[in-house]
Amino acid sequence: MTALAVSVHGLKKAYKQHTVLNGVNFEVKRGSVFALLGSNGAGKTTIIKILTTLIQANEGKAEVCGIDVAHSPEQVREKISLTGQNIAVDEILTGRENLDLVAKLRHLPDRKAITAASLKQFDLEEAGDKPLATYSGGMKRRLDLAMTMLGSPELVFLDEPSVGLDPEARLALWDTIKKMAASGITIFLTTQYLEEAEALADQIAILHEGQIIVQGTLDELKAILPAKQIEYVEKQPSLEEIFLAVTGKKGE
């Protein structure tokens, strides 16, 4: 088994005359939380779509769980799960019925037990038999993640999962993601919330103008900026300051 969950080399993607990705390179270790940062339109979702076999790159090579995404897309899909920006739940069904439907589609055995365990894991037991119309946005997102986790995927892609959530729901989501990562699942996260990457990620990469311009741990990224002058209190650079500095957007 390869030590890498994702390996991307020379990835390029263009839509007609518009180049989105222009030679993207990065790697994601198994069992880690990897955060991909970038402004709107930077190409984060395009990378997710390529890695999850929804679209194909024009050039370059991408492997997920050691499998070439272009040559063996069906094998890749057996290893992964995806939670997109839009919450993918059926508003007419209850939480339990949503989970049961996904379990059935994945041909999982003992669906009743699996569904009950999932509701408990994601703190949705009391709401399990209530229609989705009664759920808050945070509860719907937790159910979405619960559905994503059915079938024990090796790698979970979370494409801006906290968009639209209030601060309390966002913190609850972070706690859920931490628990997912602690179970050994690799998490590939895209986000515009820089504090989200600070709170969750083992490795952070910044995508800008079609390329990865920097990648490393938070401490490694902090080292990019000049040391802060110590007066009374030493203030470490925030991820937001690092992002603005490396993308050249500081002061705009």
Score class of each variant (00 low, 15 high):
191 T>A: 06
152 S>R: 10
159 D>E: 07
150 L>C: 15
66 G>Q: 02
96 R>Q: 06
103 A>I: 04
58 N>L: 05
86 N>W: 12
175 D>Y: 09
102 V>N: 12
228 K>M: 07
109 P>M: 03
242 I>Y: 13
22 N>M: 07
144 D>G: 09
135 Y>Q: 06
146 A>W: 04
146 A>Q: 11
146 A>G: 14
124 L>Y: 04
8 V>E: 12
117 A>I: 05
176 T>S: 15
62 A>R: 04
157 F>K: 13
185 I>Q: 03
66 G>L: 09
1 M>W: 08
194 L>R: 06
137 G>F: 04
204 I>L: 11
32 S>W: 05
194 L>C: 14
114 I>F: 07
190 T>C: 09
94 T>L: 10
81 S>I: 10
119 L>Y: 14
107 H>A: 12
159 D>S: 02
6 V>S: 06
138 G>S: 09
158 L>D: 02
136 S>M: 07
141 R>P: 00
42 A>P: 10
206 I>K: 09
108 L>H: 03
3 A>Y: 09
239 L>Y: 02
6 V>W: 02
76 V>I: 13
124 L>P: 07
93 L>S: 02
85 Q>D: 09
159 D>P: 04
80 I>M: 12
147 M>G: 15
118 S>A: 15
161 P>N: 11
93 L>P: 09
171 L>H: 05
227 A>M: 14
179 K>N: 12
34 F>I: 06
208 H>F: 06
164 G>S: 01
71 H>N: 13
20 V>W: 00
40 N>W: 07
66 G>R: 14
212 I>Y: 13
93 L>R: 14
115 T>S: 08
56 Q>W: 01
197 A>I: 12
157 F>H: 12
122 F>T: 10
38 G>N: 00
186 T>I: 08
88 A>V: 08
139 M>N: 02
226 P>S: 08
195 E>F: 01
141 R>H: 00
191 T>W: 06
165 L>I: 05
187 I>Y: 07
16 K>T: 02
157 F>R: 09
134 T>H: 13
88 A>S: 10
166 D>E: 11
169 A>S: 13
96 R>T: 03
27 E>Y: 04
4 L>Q: 05
81 S>Y: 05
232 Y>L: 12
48 I>T: 04
222 K>N: 00
76 V>Q: 11
104 K>A: 07
133 A>N: 02
32 S>A: 07
251 G>S: 12
176 T>V: 15
8 V>H: 08
4 L>N: 03
